[in-house]
């Protein structure tokens, strides 16, 4: 998995609560059994005025430079709620987004981000709003090692993230490989568990 350590770039504001994964990638944009090439379908219903013909909607933030190349999104509360589709995260990644800042995230989406090298960064709602205003069109710097978001003014906000998520992102770990190192413990647990609950 690609590591996430430090990132500098502009942040596209999407100040709406409850942006769901159907909006991030509509189901019809998930065309193949593949994680690849999903960026084109990112926010398709909002991004295109004619989805089939891929006509850009000039009013949508990701169609307005410099946000068309933004590696950071700033969203509202409960970002990524709804469907578990990991395609939402694969679409963000393919488009070039590496960090989403929001007051809260849908739980499955948040986990999917961490497993794909995207930082789901939680800040208090007031800080998210202030950050979007302070950043405007200018770049932010996010440092996962130092746990800071540095504004264009040079001021920095701090944030927290579960240590396991931070480690996975910083080191780009393969979660299955990490767990398989515990296989002896899993086998021992399993033997005991199944002996107590034979019907499993």
């Amino acid at each position: 998995m690609e590591k996430f350590i430090r990132l500098t770039g502009v942040a596209a504001p999407l100040p709406r609560p409850n942006i769901d994964t159907d909006a991030i990638i509509p189901s019809r944009e998930m065309k193949r059994v593949s994680k690849e090439g999903l960026g084109e379908g990112l926010f398709a219903d909002w991004r295109y005025s004619d989805v089939a013909a891929r006509v850009p909607n000039p009013d949508f933030v990701l169609n307005r430079p410099p946000f068309d190349r933004a590696p950071i999104l700033i969203g509202g509360a409960n970002f990524g709620c709804g469907s578990s589709r990991e395609h939402a995260v694969w679409a963000l990644k393919d488009y070039g987004v590496r960090c989403v800042i929001a007051p809260s995230f849908g739980a499955i989406f948040q986990g999917n981000c961490v497993r794909n090298g995207i930082l789901p960064l939680v800040l208090a709602e007031g800080h998210v709003t202030a950050l979007a205003a302070a950043a405007d069109h200018r770049p932010l710097t996010i440092d996962l090692d130092a746990l800071t978001v540095t504004l264009p003014s040079g001021d920095a906000l701090t944030f927290t993230i579960p240590p396991a998520d931070r480690q996975m992102l910083l080191e780009g770990l393969d979660p299955i490989g990490v767990t398989l190192k515990r296989l002896p413990a899993i086998i021992a647990f399993e033997a005991d568990h199944l002996s107590r609950h034979s019907w499993i």
Binding site: S84, R85, E86, V89, I108, G111, N112, R115, N116, P175, I176, T179, L180, R182, L183, I186, E190
Partner: peptide, 15 residues
């Protein structure tokens, strides 16, 4: 509910 990557993890490790 989980993502596809976690499903692969659960299938491979049962955890």
């Amino acid at each position: 509910g989980i993502g596809s990557s976690e499903a692969a993890h659960a299938l491979a490790t049962q955890t």
